[in-house]
Nucleic acid binder design. Structure first.
Lengths: 154, 154
DNA sequence: GTTAATCCCGAGCGCATAAGTCGGATATTC
DNA sequence: GAATATCCGACTTATGCGCTCGGGATTAAC
């Protein structure tokens, strides 16, 4: 999984909308300013998210965008999958872009990549906007005991 | 993390060399044939791995490549990092390509991405060629109880 | 009903990168 | 010295990401 700018921007905008739930619509201009996103580019992104029914728009003066679902109903995994197309690190272990590989039966490391994909998928699918916003762990704690490792740095 | 073809090919070649440890040098032609890799392209890759001292070459007729280290001493993480440059899904949580992001303190989801990065890093760093070859789990079992999830498909 | 702020939509563009090609030099064995 | 390898640098080509742009439709405020 590799986050594109588009997905990054989409998530930023979404979280801003979550923060302002119940309030007035937020115009793209404002979403762009607060998250340092090129306005015209964000426009496209918002349109796609509207088609997905994650957000709804109000046209005209005083218009803007609102969240269209509850923050519990949108996961980071969905967002990444929608914009980037997949979560897996390579096609042969992907649910979305799977394509048979002639080497599959011989491949020594496919198994490891599959494990990686499963971890990520699990993590991202647990990560609803609500949970992430709350700052709560997004997956069962036993995973996260692994975090701090020797000299990893950041 | 997203595996490039280059990294994929590099790993395939490495595992082939592991299988043939102690035997005669394997020429690129053969490595390419067995793993369905464009020969000229693999040439480049092998040269890079030679510079890294993961493999050594024997020039001339009957020449080819040999593993230069024990399979316990090379991890998939190293290989991915070398060819693709990083393991992290986004620069702001990467050890290698870290760059400060002005939104860092406000960013709601950075934390999740950091968790993802840590999981992957851990997994890939545990994955020595030897272990993967053996087919043994590459990381502590508690991680892998998470694997099979509802309707995930592949 | 005019103005101003907004969303909506399609098109296009430039650059970086991945993935692969190629020509030919150099080394080694038989 | 022919055959088989590696070695090296340069080149190519396609794709996609990350934007930018022009202009139309919609609505609120005055």
């Amino acid at each position: 999984m590799n986050l594109s700018k588009k997905t990054d921007y989409a998530l930023r905008a979404l979280f801003t909308l979550v923060e302002h739930q119940g309030g007035a619509p937020i115009p793209i201009r404002e979403l762009a300013r607060r998250n340092e996103i090129p306005r015209r580019f964000l426009e496209q992104i918002m349109l796609q998210m509207r088609a997905k029914r994650w957000v709804k728009s109000v046209a005209g003066k005083r218009g803007g965008y609102l969240l269209a679902k509850r923050p519990e109903e949108i996961t980071m995994g969905e967002v990444v999958r929608f914009f980037d197309g997949y979560l897996a690190p390579i096609a042969c272990v992907s649910a979305r872009r799977y394509e048979r590989c002639s080497q599959e039966t011989v491949c020594r490391f496919r198994r490891v990549l599959l494990e990686a994909r499963n971890l990520i998928a699990r993590l991202m699918e647990e990560a609803t906007l609500a949970r992430v916003m709350r700052g709560a762990p997004v997956a069962p704690s036993e995973i996260f005991t692994l975090q701090g490792r020797d000299g990893d740095g950041i």
